[in-house]
Amino acid sequence: MKYTPRPITENVNVSKTSPLREFFTLLLGILAFLVGVYVLLGLTVDLVAPRISPRLEDRLAGLFTSFYAAEDPASPQRARLQALLDDLSAAAGQDERQYQVHVVPDPLVNAVALPGGHIVLFSGLLDQVASENELAMILGHELGHFGNRDHLKGLGRGLVLVFLSAAALGVDSKASRMLQSLLVTTEMRFSRKQELLADAWGLELLVRKYGHAGGASDFFRRVHEQEGGKRFSYLFATHPYPEKRVRSIEMFISEREIPVGETVPFSRQSP
């Protein structure tokens, strides 16, 4: 048999298409699909959440007790916060539900409204508070979340998020964590409207309790001035920019011509 040496010039085993184009097509396609499903499910949650009965909500609350497991229930500070919260809740007269405040030692500057009427304040936030009025504003803001049932919406969306990424990419892969953080950021942009609504609610309660709006925006302004500090990054991510919040609160005050009075100092030590 004769051998004729001839080179193969055309590589048939490797596609000629651009891998970059394939990459972006796939990435955008998958992201669009996930976001689409997510928005759809999220809207469903928004429709369902306001219809969840308080009894079911209390059952759900059992899932979150670990959040405030680290607190010291007998501290005098907590008793004072609880008294303040009771005042505000009475001023609101919104429902007969018993709200409870918890203080968790954590440098986070944030507060969370959890199912079952629990408000968790992180001690990092308490360290930043200068007056009782500011604190009342923050507690009022969280009561606003309960009033608008944002806490259930957020929870439902969170569950959707975890379910989606787990379904798409497996329970504990790097890609699924990445996707989660990406979707959380998107989600937080949707929620900024809710935050501003809760601010309005908090302001309302503040005025009902003290008769004036003093201290309403002080806390957010202080946070804004310290912007750039790492410990605030969480607050920035989940809430509107403090600057924008301060502006919207002040606009609200001037529009409704609410008087601004002296603030009551808040001491961290027990009296």
Partner: peptide, 19 residues
């Protein structure tokens, strides 16, 4: 290409990245 193949695995089809 590894990420590209990972994305492709979600959708299915020809995995050109490994060719």
């Amino acid at each position: 290409k590894r990420i590209l193949a990972g994305l492709r695995a979600l959708v299915g089809g020809r995995v050109k990245a490994y060719e």
